[in-house]
Structures are given as C-alpha cells and as structure tokens.
C-alpha cells in the first residue's frame, strides 16, 4: 500500500486518534460528490464537500450491505442538514452526525475534518 503524499495547495485533513492525517488535496473534492481515502490502519473514509465548501468525513462502509461504497452516493440537503444516500439501497446518512435518517438504530462513524 502506497499513500501518495500531496504536495500543493490546500489539504483535506482528518483527525484520527493519534493526530491529523492528510487525505488529499482539496481540489480532488468535487462539490456534491464524494471520494474514498485509505487510512493508515487499512480502514476507509468517505470525504465530501458541499457547495458552500463545507467538508465532511464518515466511514466509507455501508452498514446495510457491508460494501465500502458510501463515498459514491448522491449527496443533498434535508431540512437544512447535509446527507449522503447509499448508492446500493439508498438509505440516507447525516454527514455531520453519521446518523441514518431512515433507520434510527443505525449510524456510521464520523471524523473531524478541515482544509489546511
């Protein structure tokens, strides 16, 4: 596994237990569309940017199917809050809290994220 270091421009960083981790350049994030990044421990995170420039990071694994695909879902705004809909069975997850909007009992991990 090679993690390509980013060299220019603003970076998207997320906070892991042992400090900040640089995932990619900000330019790699298309507003309204996600990307997945590999974490040092082999885990996966889904990163999103909304049209206002807000950044979000949640676990990439879709808890309903087990596939690592949340980064490929459609994003949107529901009652003023940002969400992503799983591309497989369409359950929606609040990007800020990780809570599933269609099933109270389910949530995915969220990460603190910033552009620096």
């Amino acid at each position: 596994m090679t993690l390509a270091p980013e060299t220019t421009g603003l970076k998207v960083r997320l906070r892991l237990t042992d400090g900040w981790f640089t995932a990619c350049g900000l330019h790699a994030l298309l507003p309204g569309r996600g990307v997945a990044a590999l974490l040092p421990d082999g885990g996966q995170v889904a990163l999103f940017r909304d049209r206002e420039g807000g950044l979000y990071a949640i676990d990439n694994r879709d808890p309903f199917t087990g596939a690592a695909v949340l980064s490929r879902g459609l994003t949107g705004t529901h009652l003023g809050r940002p969400f992503v809909a799983s591309p497989l069975l369409k359950q929606r997850f609040d990007l800020a809290t990780g809570r599933c909007l269609d099933d109270d009992g389910v949530r995915v991990a969220v990460y603190e994220v910033e552009a620096a």
Binding site: T2, A36, A37, L38, G42, A67, A68
Partner: peptide
C-alpha cells in the same frame, strides 16, 4: 480509483 490517496490500491472489501 478506489482511493483518492492510494490510486493503485484496490478496495480490499471487494
């Protein structure tokens, strides 16, 4: 790519 920061690495879940 599966990963924006590791373009050559395939998604291990697949």
């Amino acid at each position: 790519v599966s990963f924006v920061n590791a373009p050559d690495t395939p998604d291990p879940v697949v």
